[in-house]
Design a protein around this nucleic acid. Structure first.
Lengths: 342, 342
DNA sequence: TTGTAGGCGTTATCAC
DNA sequence: GTGATAACGCCTACAA
């Protein structure tokens, strides 16, 4: 099982290693037929260039580091898939590490990856964005980093983000337009910029439609089903049931719906519910969940493209790409289907 | 941003590179205080051993390849997490590739990883196990490969699998014990050994309890919610509604439940439903879904341990580890709660 | 205990 | 167009 090396091929054909090397790297002059001969016999001999040696001599790893909050999260699963597909196609390997929504773990991951000589990093920061100073420093040093989601305009360097405010606004307006009185927003952790942006959209809709402050509430839930459950249970306990709830994501929405049902409330008849960052569950639950879909795959791919641009040209300008999604209205948020929403 | 190398450290301390190298690799004799001095100044200088050079000189990549059917699948997300944690801790990097339930893609992935010099492979084969001959060949050549899930006893080499038959038997028996008449099994793709094993368990329970063949059916569904939906819709169309359904996994179960409800059937009152390979959704849906939980994390970790054993000792004997799980009974499968099941 | 030197498989800079 | 040869950064006999 010994690996065939460039030397073996050279010896077999009585040419020098450099010639063989040239045959595999288009950038040098080499006679066409010698090239073809080399490629052919190399294939016969089962030769594959050793990527590790290549990396060493070129002083680049051809590895890209990807740091995400959690793999068990449809959004980031899709991110990984998209990134893998694109980057492998471009000749890179992808090293994925997850931070468990923990800033320290995130920093550890990033340092591990840097020590492993990745050529660049794609980072979806965890709650709190606590390592921004460190990243800013690296970016200033010229280290290629692209942020994905989880940051706002103010983050340094290049980034691909979703227009949370806008789509949160639309989702909220959809509820307002049904003349619902009390509309609550179950927000994500308040120290996440994504949460803040969705809150902004929610407030903007309230202001535009002149809803008075007594008729809406913003309650910090989190990102997990359990957190949606807790919040709604608390509301039920205090007999403070809204007509509609706009949740920071589908998981919180599903948790809320579960507990509403368990307590005898009907969705959407008693309480209309809207989610965000559509998951595959949205269509699978009863009632089906209205939600805002993000172009996850494209966002990730864009981040990959941006990163490669920075790796290949260290003077490439920082870019901020803000993407849009779509809002799909399903049963969970339509109280009166004659209203023409479905 | 130039990387500090072993030479820089050596020069600074007026020692040889080998001494520095030794300081970082415990296996050679070196005086304790020189070692400490070297480690200390190396740290000051910001030196980190270059893993790529290390790999080249040691002729091993310290990379492990992991090939799974799909990342968007809670089971395999967890597998990745477990493997990452364990292998990174052991000094390895993990390269994950997914096959999209496609045998050709799987083979491509494996070859890519081998060409990238991974030191070993953990493979969860896709439907059909079409590449077993190729793997058998590699294993005979001494290439370290461990299979995870998705294979049966007959697969070559080491493997970590779940006792599907046993737990499928238990789940089925739970339904039989409620004196339900018609019990159907929505199976996975018939060319998956996992499906076959679960079918075996189902049949075994039927035989043990002497259920006549008219009273049960095995219908091939698949692995996706949509496939569960299709099967149940067909049954509804033919007015062939069973008293209980045991599904090959939670996704198929959720699909079936959805369509049952859409068509006015109550779960579990009209139809009891059981899933398999418990997902986080099991507790989140209404009614909560009874399901068999697999020790995913432990299975993956075991696979990692086995692989390292093979990498470190090429004469390590092939091992087959069969794991057990637990069956959690929830509302979806209990028709009469006075029966004492809940 | 420490230093010297050759090798890991490539690429890249020279000559020729 | 092709061949020597010195890197790339580290490990590891072997010698001292």
């Amino acid at each position: 099982m010994k690996h065939v090396t460039i030397k073996d091929v050279a010896k077999r054909l009585n040419v020098s290693v450099s010639t063989v090397s040239r045959a595999f790297n288009d950038k040098y002059d080499i006679r066409k037929d010698t090239k073809e001969l080399i490629l052919k016999t190399a294939k016969e001999m089962g030769y594959h260039p050793n990527p590790i040696a290549k990396k060493l001599s070129q002083n680049r790893s051809l590895n890209i580091g990807v740091v995400i909050p959690e793999i068990i999260n449809e959004y980031y699963s899709e991110v990984i898939i998209a990134l893998q597909e694109f980057l492998i196609y471009k000749g890179y390997q992808v090293l994925v590490m997850q931070s468990d929504e923990n800033g320290e773990q995130e920093l550890k991951n990033v340092k591990t990856l840097i020590n492993n000589m990745v050529d660049g990093l794609i980072i979806a920061p965890t709650t709190g964005n606590s390592n921004m100073d460190f990243y800013r420093q690296r970016i200033n040093d010229g280290y290629p980093i692209v942020f994905l989601n989880r940051v706002d305009d103010s983050a340094p360097g290049s980034k691909v983000i979703f227009n949370n405010e806008k789509w949160s606004f639309f989702a909220t307006e959809h509820l307002i337009r049904q003349n619902l009185n009390k509309i609550y927003h179950f927000s994500g952790y308040l120290d996440m910029c994504v949460s803040q942006e969705r809150i902004q959209g929610f407030k903007k809709a309230m202001n535009k439609h002149k809803i008075s402050k007594e008729n809406y509430k913003i309650i910090e839930a989190g990102l997990l089903p359990e957190e949606g459950m807790e919040v709604i249970e608390d509301l039920i306990f205090h007999h403070d049931i809204p007509d509609a709830i706009f949740c920071v994501n589908d998981m919180v929405a599903l948790g809320a719906i579960k507990k509403l049902k368990d307590n005898g409330y009907r969705v959407p008849e008693d309480v209309a519910v809207v989610g965000f960052t559509e998951t595959r569950m949205a269509e699978l639950v009863s009632p089906q969940l209205s939600s805002v879909k993000q172009p996850t795959y494209d966002m990730a791919k864009k981040a990959g493209e941006l990163l490669l641009r920075h790796i290949e040209d260290e003077n490439a300008p920082a870019e901020t790409i803000i993407m849009n999604g779509e809002f799909t209205i399903r049963k969970s948020s339509v109280k009166n289907s004659s209203a023409g929403y479905l």
